[in-house]
Design a protein around this nucleic acid. Structure first.
Length: 496
RNA sequence: GCUCCAAUCGUCCAGUGGCCAGGAUUCCGGACUUUCAAUCCGGGAAGCAGGGUUCGAUUCCCUGUUGGAGCACCA
């Protein structure tokens, strides 16, 4: 039987780098064995999934070159490949009904409130948190009647009460063993009639003839449920293989707060798909010859599922950058030209609106926008001292804003755009210009320095090296936090 | 709290019952270069702890420790 694998992302939010990672593994495995790679969209959470997100997933997979043989937008013999469409076919309900009829699942009428209360009690008593199976023993006839009467219900699996679950994951030294008593009666069908992940994935993997499920280890704990479902439904289960999770530098599961996880970010930054794929391939896996730089074709050729390292690798951007450089410098002249052009154009498009009103000739842009392209600027010391201030005062003020802006930029939810910067700086002025009640004469004098006019000119000259520029906050926004802070520091040195 | 998984330089990845523990990245130094980058050369940097098994353990086993994940009508 030919190998068939799948990647099954949920279209919530931006396309994730973890999807690319798992996708790459699956893709290489499939292609190495001459099999198929399928993309399936798991959008059974009606409240969180969006069409735009699904589109972004297709686009990012294509950008990477992880071309799926079957999927929502490319079709295939075992579609549809979007679960919400399969829900409409009544697919999952059918299997849920089968389980109920077999006595392997049952109706549960608990309300969300009731379940919350249950959890709270268990948490307080330091007990394991799981559904207490209160409706498991309901006579089927009574359950049917209540459901027929319109009472909302979910379908839960009737998990074994005892015994052990054992599974041999080819990547783990020891078989996975779990006591059934630890596993609760998972909801299979939600009260809206839609399946949960567990039911949907098992049913679809079977219907789509998936032979191997290579997924992240966050699924390892629900493996027993999935195997159980396969058995009760009479399916031959695919082989499940769990690989390590991508990590932040602090070893926690990769998150967007601590790492760029949005695949489109990499594209926008100018990373090449080849470099990103190469980098991802180096996480948890390696070229048998120890080679570091290689492309997809080569990856497919040497890929060996059994050689994957399951310890979650830390995602290290520095290494990605290095690989990007390797790939970039080897680009044929035409492609390099295109890459550079793309980057320059993007910058240009962002800047042009700022200069629209102050140009008379196209060429004016060249000198006016120079500070926005330059690595550094060198303002005249004289220009850095606003009227009515002396050198020391100017320097002091520069230092103060620099620190404030640096702290702002480092903030968790900092947005470095013109409106936010304006709000921040104006607030700063308002606050700092009010001397405290017990202020010393010196402090009172310093408070007087916090004037919008004074500070704005100071910021302008320090960050652009010129006395004239587009509106200050647009200017700061475009130059970027890193450079602005750096230039404010340079300006202080000029005033020594 | 309960359950599961993992453990080699800071990070990524090799490797072996007797290794000088190897490569990459990062950092530092040098060469080349007008300079920078690239490139090349060199340096620093690791086997979680304690017990076993064994003539010998980084490698095999156990316990602990540490880290991570899961415990939803989310996936």
């Amino acid at each position: 039987m030919s190998v068939r694998v799948r990647i099954a992302p949920s279209p919530t939010g931006d396309p994730h780098v973890g999807t690319a990672y798992i996708g790459l593994l699956n893709y290489c495995f499939a292609k190495h064995h001459g099999g198929q790679f399928v993309l399936r969209i798991e959008d059974t959470d009606q409240t969180r999934c969006t069409e735009a997100s699904a589109q972004a997933i297709y686009a990012s997979m294509k950008w990477l070159g992880l071309n799926y043989d079957e999927g929502p937008d490319v079709g295939g013999a075992r579609g549809p490949y979007i679960q919400s469409e399969r829900v409409k076919l009544g697919l999952y309900r059918k299997y849920a009904d089968q389980l109920v009829a077999q006595g392997d699942a049952y109706y549960c009428f608990c309300t969300a409130r009731e379940l919350d209360g249950m959890k709270a009690r268990q948490r307080a008593a330091n007990e394991p948190i799981m559904y207490d199976r209160r409706h498991r023993g309901l006579p089927p006839a009574e359950a049917q009647a209540r459901a027929a009467a319109g009472e909302p219900y979910v379908v839960r699996m009737k998990a074994p009460l005892e015994g052990e679950f054992v599974y041999r994951d080819r990547l783990r030294k020891q078989p996975v063993v779990k006591g059934w008593k630890e596993i609760d009666d998972q909801v299979l069908l939600k009260s809206d009639g839609w399946p949960t992940y567990h039911l949907a994935a098992v049913v679809d993997d079977h219907l789509m003839a998936i032979t191997h499920v290579i997924r992240a280890e966050e699924w390892l704990n629900s493996l027993p449920k999935h195997i159980w479902l396969n058995e009760k439904l009479g399916f031959t289960p695919p082989e499940y293989v769990h690989v390590g999770l991508l990590r932040n530098a602090d070893k926690s599961k990769i998150s967007k707060r601590k790492n760029p996880t949005n695949l489109m970010w990499y594209k926008a930054q100018g990373f090449m798909p080849e470099a990103l794929l190469n980098f991802l391939a180096l996480l948890g896996h390696s070229h048998p010859d120890g080679k570091e730089k290689f492309g997809l074709e080569e990856m497919i050729a040497f890929f060996d599922l059994d050689r994957i390292n399951v310890a979650g690798p830390v995602f290290d951007l520095a290494k990605l950058r290095h690989l990007q450089g390797q790939w970039f410098r080897e680009l044929p002249p035409e492609r390099m030209r295109a890459e550079v052009h793309r980057a320059v154009d993007a910058r240009f498009d962002a800047l042009l609106p700022l200069f629209k009103e102050r140009m008379a000739f196209g060429g004016d842009f060249v000198w006016q926008a120079e500070p926005f392209y330059a690595d550094s600027v060198s303002p005249h010391a004289d220009d850095l001292v606003p009227k009515g201030l002396d050198k020391a005062q100017a320097k002091w003020l520069l230092e103060q804003v620099q620190q404030a802006l640096k702290a702002y930029a480092a903030g968790e939810n900092a947005v470095w755009d013109a409106p936010s910067l304006e709000a921040f700086i104006r607030t700063l002025i308002t606050e700092r210009s009010q001397p405290a009640a017990d202020a010393t004469p010196d402090q009172q004098a310093q408070a007087k320095l916090w004037q919008p006019k004074t500070l704005f000119m100071l910021l302008r000259v320090a960050s652009t090296g010129k006395k004239e520029s587009p509106p200050l906050f647009d200017t700061l926004a475009q130059i970027g936090a890193l450079r602005v802070v750096e230039r404010l520091g340079m300006a202080q040195q000029k005033l020594r």
